[in-house]
């Protein structure tokens, strides 16, 4: 058995032991206080940062709400304008199915065909003048 163990066991050196551990405990307590203070400061800084970010977001949201309101007003204004214009200036021309599927002209580039078509036209012109 060691000397300290012996002293504790026997109760002889109890006071001595507490006195010997006191400076260590003091240092430990002070260290804890310092760490706590530093931690508290850091948390407070983070809080401030969050508040700033939150303020910025609030401003941005408010800006968007304002912009949305302005755009809604503009849309309403334009819709009113169209409804007043439609009956007077926009004519509704119906697009027929025939016109959509109508085959476009494919003028021939074949010279012999063109010559034959020219001859047909000439014959038809002569037919009308005869």
């Amino acid at each position: 058995m060691s000397l300290i163990g012996y002293e504790i066991a026997t109760g002889i050196g109890g006071g001595k032991t507490i006195v010997a551990m006191l400076p260590g405990l003091t240092i430990l307590t002070l260290g804890g206080i310092i760490v706590w203070q530093l931690w508290k400061k850091k948390i407070s800084q983070l809080d401030q940062k969050n508040v700033k970010t939150s303020d910025k977001l609030t401003i941005a949201v408010n800006r968007l709400i304002t912009e949305n309101n302005e755009l809604s007003k503009k849309i309403n204004h334009l819709q009113t304008k169209i409804s007043t214009l439609q009956p007077t200036t926009i004519s509704q021309k119906s697009v027929t199915l025939d016109s959509l599927i109508n085959e476009s002209v494919k003028v021939t580039k074949n010279s012999s065909k063109l010559a034959m078509l020219k001859q047909i036209v000439a014959d038809n012109v002569a037919l009308r003048t005869t």
Binding site: E103, V105, K106, V107, T108, L117, K118, V121, V125
Partner: peptide, 14 residues
């Protein structure tokens, strides 16, 4: 086919 392949200026002659 003749109609579709006929140039516009040919039609104008008729």
């Amino acid at each position: 086919k003749m109609c579709i392949e006929m140039p516009d200026d040919y039609w104008e002659e008729i």
